[in-house]
Design a protein around this nucleic acid. Structure first.
Lengths: 237, 237
DNA sequence: CCTATACTCCATAACTCTATGGATAACAGA
DNA sequence: TCTGTTATCCATAGAGTTATGGAGTATAGG
């Protein structure tokens, strides 16, 4: 018995799905997509962040644009790429979740060097929200300043990982620190927490990162340090 | 400025995610995965259902097994493959959702030949549940009998698409029919509804299909027509 | 122990994808 | 208009992927 419905239609359908599959078959494209879920970036910025040559990065971005997973905006001589919608970021998250669930290797990497192996539980979003309200915690955004400026947890201060040790004295040793970064696949916050632990501080990571926080409808602020415009309308159309 | 955290770790991480990405880069593998989300099947059954040669199908299944997306069980000389967990099916659904959201072509195919183009709204799960309770609707499972036997909506009767026209007189013309199949990517139910409309019947599709119904925790029965064992423990470990 | 069945493994040829550098295109500023 | 910047396009070599048929493996049954 053959149960192939409308023969042609089905084949076409799966071919379309494979267009999206092809995007995530290459590690660098997943990396780029993950970066784009943080906010828009120029081709050059993406290339240097992912360690690709400009032409190669452009080619990868072209593939992703053809699959309609990213969109572009031109500003003078520069082209800014962004994820084509919230669904794209959800898909990247889903891919990461599946990988963690099915591939022991992923969990090992995430629990490996510089992560929360010390049995430190992560802080839930609900808990953080409450403790920020009460004010008995300091939230640090350990991502690069540009990403902080593009959107951050309301009330968080920008303290990029690479400046953490130098600016350690800005943090009150008696107050617990909660660090967050780009999401479950990002290693910035776990590394920050490990560093803080080495210095005898109390610190934990937030579960997930900014995209998940935003997606949960929790307060996000934009702009550089200090000025706290309640903005960020990126996904709110 | 370079912001590449733990250089090696990140590259490894994305390479692992790409292992899963590579699985869904090929249309036939998506098709196979979609089939496996309906229940386990032998290699031969999968090959014939997807129109692949046995060796090719086996190779594709091998790729999927290496990525830990499917698992096998041997029974005599036969090897049965199954999805490696509920997360796998959720991922396939997520891929389909993303494709529908981002690729106009997919929506076109789904709304194309034989689908609910007639402005027919789909029945929600909640509505169906209530109307089955009241009993003013007949639910037909238009998938192949084997899939019905492996698990179906409690109360549904098995009426494979290919027998629909021949067995049309089994359906009371005064009662609305709700057809369901494998999920949003499956075209069996929309075709059945189109056929029923041509015969002047009142009929609609259920939103999504059996996997989504099961995932929502709604009643599923197993076994062939008539006998209604409340079973199906496939995902309940 | 022999045979048939249901798969998996292997070698290979055809094909597709990726990285790279040079050429081209779009734009801003002088 | 000329120049520098930023990004895309193109040709190509190299790497990886798929389909296929034939060989090999595991199992059930005679």
């Amino acid at each position: 018995m053959e149960y192939r419905t409308t023969g042609q239609g089905r084949a076409d359908l799966y071919a379309q799905l494979a267009r999206i599959g092809k995007v995530v078959m290459h590690p660098k494209r997943i990396e780029l997509l993950d970066l784009l879920c943080q906010g828009e970036r120029s081709v050059e910025a993406l290339a240097s962040a992912s360690g690709l040559k400009l032409t190669t990065a452009s080619a990868h971005l072209g593939v992703m644009r053809q699959a309609r997973l990213v969109e572009t905006r031109r500003e003078g001589t520069r082209v800014y790429y962004r994820a084509a919608g919230e669904e794209v970021c959800r898909f990247v998250t889903a891919l990461g979740d599946l990988a963690r669930a099915r591939l022991a290797e992923v969990d090992q990497i995430l629990r490996g060097i510089g992560t929360d192996a010390h049995g430190t539980e992560r802080v839930t979003r609900a808990e953080l929200l409450e403790r920020v309200r009460v004010g008995d915690v300091v939230v640090i955004d350990v991502r690069p300043p540009e990403e902080y400026a593009a959107g951050h947890i309301a009330g968080a201060i920008s303290l990029p990982l690479e400046h953490l040790e130098a600016r350690l004295d800005e943090l009150d040793p008696t107050v617990e620190v909660v660090a967050y970064c780009r999401g479950p696949l990002c290693l910035l916050a776990p590394e920050a927490v490990a560093t803080l632990h080495e210095r005898g501080r109390t610190a934990r990571c937030l579960e997930d990162g900014l995209p998940e926080w935003r997606r949960a409808g929790l307060p996000v602020a934009a702009g550089a340090e200090g000025q706290m415009e309640p903005d960020d309308t990126r996904w709110s159309r």
